[in-house]
Every structure is written in C-alpha cells, then in structure tokens.
Design a protein around this nucleic acid. Sequence first.
RNA 1: CGGGGUAUAGCGUAGCCCGGUUAUCGCGCCUCGUUUGGGACGAGGAGGUCGCAAGUUCGAAUCUUGCUACCCCGACCA
Length: 491
Amino acid sequence: MAKNLTTREEDYSKWYNELVVKADLAENSGVRGCMVIKPYGFAIWERIQAELDRMFKETGHQNAYFPLFIPKSYFSKEASHVDGFAKECAVVTHYRLKNAEDGSGIVVDESAKLEEELIVRPTSETIIWDTYRKWVQSYRDLPLLINQWANVVRWEMRTRLFLRTTEFLWQEGHTAHATKQEALVEAEQMMNVYSDFVENYMAVPVVRGTKTESERFAGALETYCIEALMQDGKALQAGTSHFLGQNFAKAFDVKFANKEGKQEYVWATSWGVSTRLMGALIMTHSDDNGLVLPPNLAPDQVVIVPIYRNDEQFDAVCEVSEKLMKDLRSQGVRVKFDKRDTHKPGWKFNEYELKGVPLRIGIGPKDVEKGTVELARRDTLTKEFVDAVDVVSKVKELLEEIQSNLYKKAFDYRAEHTTEVQSYEEFKDVLETKGGFISAHWDGTIETEERIKNETKATIRCIPIEGDTTPGTCIFSGKPSERRVLFAKAY
RNA sequence: CGGGGUAUAGCGUAGCCCGGUUAUCGCGCCUCGUUUGGGACGAGGAGGUCGCAAGUUCGAAUCUUGCUACCCCGACCA
C-alpha cells in the first residue's frame, strides 16, 4: 500500500501535516498562517456545526451575528482581556487604496486613515457586551442566550493546519444572567454539551475540568474545559467555557432592574469550540493508512465501489449498487456510489481509505451472481462477504460498532497513558518516556506551576471534575496539596 | 524578533562548487489502445519569466549585491 504517507512512528507531526493535505481536508494558502479548508474538510466541519448547533438550540440558545471589526476603544475597556489578546491582534488603519504615483502598483492611501483603528476580532466579548447594554434593562430580559458562528483572527507566530491558524472558524456563545449561580450553571452546562458532543459524535474521550489561574481565559473568573489526549501523548484543549463574573458587565455597564427595582450588573459566560476540533478528530483516530472518521461525523459513511470488466457487467453491477444505495439512504445512511470510470477499483479503495470512509462496499460480477457484497471496515481494515439481503442491517450495525470501537480504542489509549506519580523524579521520567496525562499533587501556586512548565514543558491541563481529591504533598515544593491535578505537554 | 535553511513545470526534484548548444528525472495532466476484485501498461503529447530586481560577462539557473516569500528551531497561543 504505497501511499507515501509518513508513518506516525517516523515523525508524528509530519504524518499529521501530510494527512491533512493528502486526505483533502485543507491546505496552506497564499496568506501566511491562513488555511484553505477544502470541500471534504469543510463537509466534516459542517457536520460538527450541524450537531452542535442543534445542541445549542436544544439548550435554549439562539444564533446571531456581530461585526468582524471592533473599535479599539471597546477593546481596551476590560483590562485583563486586553492583556490577553493585545499581542495578537490584526488592526485596520486605513480604508482606501490608490495607484502609486510612480506607477509601481497599488498602495495604501495615507490620506484615508481611520479616525479610530478597528481591531479584527480575536473574540467578540467586547462588541457583544457593548451591544448587550442596549438589550438588557430588566430581569425580564434575562437570561440572554446567544451564539454566533464566525471567523476570528489571532496573529500567531507559529501555525499548523487546523490546530493553530491565524484565521479560524468557531462558534462563540455569550450569555447574560441575573444571578451568579445561573451563570455558573450555564458555563458548566456548556462544558457538558461539549463533552457530550466530542465523546458521542467525535468518539474522542475528554477530561472535564477547570483551568488554573494562569491558563484561564483573559477576563474570566473560572474557565471550564475539556481536554483530549492525542496519539503522540500530547494533550489538546478541545473546548472551553468561561464564567466571566461581572467583569464585562461592569466594563460595558450592562445593568438590569431586579424585581425590587434595584439596578444590578448582569453575570456573564462565554464558550467556544473551533476548527481545532478537526485536529483532535484527526489525531485521535487516524492511522498510517490515512484518516479514520467516526461514522457520526463522516460526510460519507459508506462508499460503494463497482467492479467490472465490460459495459454489460457495469450495467448489472450498477443496478444492484443503485438499489442498495437507495435502500441505505432510506434508512438514513449517508452513502456514496462512486461509479466514475476514470479510476480503477484499486485506486478507489486506497483513496477512500486515505479519506477515512468508515465502510466500503465492493460489488462485482461475482457478487451479482452470488447475491453478495464485499464489506470492508476502515477502523479494523477487515473485509467480509455479506449476503445482499442482509447488507442494510449489517451496515447499520457496523456503523454503530465502528463508532463505539473508535471511542473505546481512544479511551483505552488514554487510560494507558494517564499516570499517577508520587514524586517529581517520577513525573519527569514518565513525561519523557511515556507522555500522556500525569496526575500529580500540586501546591496550588502559580510559581510552582510556572517552574514545572519551564523545566519540563508540561503544563497543568486542568483540575479534573471527576478526580482524586485526596490531599497530599506537592511533587515539586513538598508543600500541602489539596488534590491531584492533570499535567501534560500540550498543543 | 533572534539563529539556520530553501526558492527550477501542478507536486517532488537534478543541474549551481568549476558560467557555454534544445534545463534533468519521477509523479500528475492530455490523446490513443489494451486494462479494471488493493494506487495498471504501452506509445505519443502538452506544460518553464530557473522567486524578484540590479550587477559582472561575449554568454548567467549557475558568480556578486539587494529585496521578497516560504520552511525548520527558540520566545507567545484556542
């Protein structure tokens, strides 16, 4: 099977880059750090969007859209928020181009300088809270539960397809509540929506937790997160949900009259997942033969490849294939019948393997004769012959099995790569030799966290919600520790 | 922004040291024929401002200078 794909063993990050390009998911563009998401990659993103969007609406949220540009003055209203993002903002300073006087081409028209610069949103808290001020007057206007699907720009130094790009797609939810408790419940709820989605649709197991102060979102009082573990032993933050307290309400003066007629600041949350999820999906399941997609997210769950030598056979095979396609579709299965005669079956087999289609059905003259089809699984790379009459039920059964098998494989991998350590020596040893999540006692100080990071590159991924809460002593400082936290090297 | 590297057809590359006919090879692409159950084969064909600009020279992909872009390594990050 010559696919010229670098193996994970050889060079994991090269494997990832090649896979993204060869599976037709995305490619680098003429703009530094910005990717082109190709149709196949975008189809997967659309499935992610569709499912999440449904879940957001089920939990009472509505979609809206806010501007791409944010006036600089808005941006500077919430101090810690500015600190967090200032270093990576793209800024619009002019609004007109002109032909250069010396004929050398198009240049910026210096006379068209903006009175106030516009920031290309790195996230929308500021513009949204400036808007919410006008929308909220009474407790009757609350809660305000809004989401937007958008692009954002963060001027990153080093970029990688899907994992970190200068422009990326995401959704950002922004909610306003009358009470602290309600906002906390919302933030926690959305973390759970994310973990539910990522585990059940993406088949990626996650650890739910909260961030330490230094890893927290700029402007948040608490950041909830879901952390996944990739096949190379590095952690990837798959989603975050923030309890923002009244920071933005105060910065943007968003007040409401409570039942007693007293003015109060609202309580806020924001939460988001991005195209980075694509990276998590790829790095969790795929193998050296290419992409492996969980059936719930695969744009094509099944592909039918016809095999034939002549027109007569082609017609016979087509008839059977098209009927099967119809039957499968009527059962809600996403199926593609690839009857292109420009590529040979062998070529197609490899192509769909590279693209991670969960199930492949081969139908040839012998099958037509015997009333069978060949069914091949992408996750296990196994093949079997199935009676044509049983195919539909068999396909449905296998799709479910593949979905749960992928989750189980990833879950087992994570279980094997989560290590409880008692000492700093052991910590460093495990980090070096095995990688993965390391559960260790930490004294709760930023200083210790920082020093461990500097010495080992590992960071505290989260304080797990379900985790060992027995007190102990910090592996680094020897001071008392309230509970174990999860460390890892991260993307 | 520091350190290192690269730039030749859609992609990957040879040639560069030591300047000299028509710029090499593979993949891909087009045409025809034979093929089609794990990336077929043969024959023919198309495709190039050698990153950009200037210089040296009778002559530059090759030497010199400047510029630009990209990649890798560090500091920042969903």
